[in-house]
């Protein structure tokens, strides 16, 4: 609960922030601080400098873009939940409205959550299901990272040293698409032991496409491709969903802890995949 000493800066522009980041390799970006500060208090991290992004206007705000939406990295969960431009992304709102508690939702940011890459965070599953793109800027310029390439492993993402997430793009939802996120929360931390986001497109009484994102269960968020394949082409009935998810956890790298051991967690992947898909289709 007692962090090491550190410096603190509030750059006004992205360029300033990048320069500060480049100047000190032990500096860290600070967004909502709700993941970074706890690790500092436990001295699991001891950055020499915190570069607070809160004054950088370019990182704020949600806008509609090309049928989809662009979410500034510094958008808080509470702002996302209230945003008109994001209303259609029901899975996202399912997540942003239940993450942590009110304080966490008022401080924690979408960009921070993505950058942190916590294996038990909620948003990674949602972003995978929605097929998001992560926009970043670094000394080598800007680039867009497809979500499928973003989560690399335990607390690691495709972000390079010195890169800053500027925004997240959500593509337009195809006609007939509905989405949902359900979470099996750890009774202590409230983080996901298993969290599943589903985006299901129905056309002509059949599932024509779907994306299922899983978080919490393993070292990093991942898509449930086996389930997606089994579900696609089916009629989306309870029976077909049950059969599509039956072995959802098989072959996955699953973590265990005192609240949910590996076998239990694997079994819960199926249960929550089913619940997410049922919830998404129910919204169609």
């Amino acid at each position: 609960m007692i962090p090491s000493a550190f410096e603190y800066a509030t750059p006004a522009t992205l360029n300033e922030a990048m320069a500060m980041l480049a100047a000190d390799e032990d500096a860290k970006l600070l967004a909502g601080g709700h993941s970074l500060l706890p690790t500092m208090k436990l001295r699991l991290a001891a950055p020499t400098k915190l570069i607070d992004l809160r004054k950088i206007g370019e990182l704020r705000g949600v806008s509609a873009s090309g049928g989809g939406a662009r979410i500034g990295a510094m958008t808080t969960y509470a702002e996302a939940t209230a945003s008109a431009a994001l209303k259609g992304y029901a899975a996202l709102i399912d997540a942003t409205s239940i993450i942590g508690d009110t304080q966490v939702r008022n401080r924690g940011t979408i960009g921070g959550a993505m950058a942190h890459g916590d294996p038990a965070a909620d948003l990674p599953a949602v972003m995978l299901a929605l097929g998001a793109t992560v926009n970043v800027i670094g000394s080598a310029g800007s680039r867009a990272i497809a979500i499928d390439d973003f989560f690399v492993g335990m607390l690691t993402t495709a972000l390079e040293e010195g890169e800053i997430i500027t925004s997240i793009d959500l593509p337009a939802l195809a006609a007939g698409t509905s989405t949902a996120y359900v979470k099996f929360a750890n009774p202590a931390s409230g983080y996901a032991m298993v969290g599943v986001a589903a985006s299901v497109t129905m056309s002509g009484g059949k599932v024509s496409a779907c994306r299922i994102g899983l978080t919490g269960a393993g070292p990093s968020a991942t898509r449930l491709e086996g389930v997606e394949q089994a579900l696609t082409g089916s009629d989306g009935s309870e029976a077909s969903i049950a059969s599509a998810v039956a072995n959802a956890g098989d072959g996955l790298d699953i973590l265990g802890d005192i609240h949910a051991g590996e076998d239990y967690r694997r079994a819960m992947v199926s249960v929550y995949a089913k619940r997410a898909i049922v919830a998404a289709i129910a919204r169609a």
Binding site: N186, P187, A188, S189, Y191, D257, I258, H259
Partner: peptide
């Protein structure tokens, strides 16, 4: 919910609000 768990080495596994419910 609550359970104070030590592992075999005597480390308190449920040593924070993240693990002790």
């Amino acid at each position: 919910y609550e359970n104070a768990v030590y592992d075999e080495n005597g480390q308190l596994i449920s040593g924070s609000m993240m693990d002790y419910a």
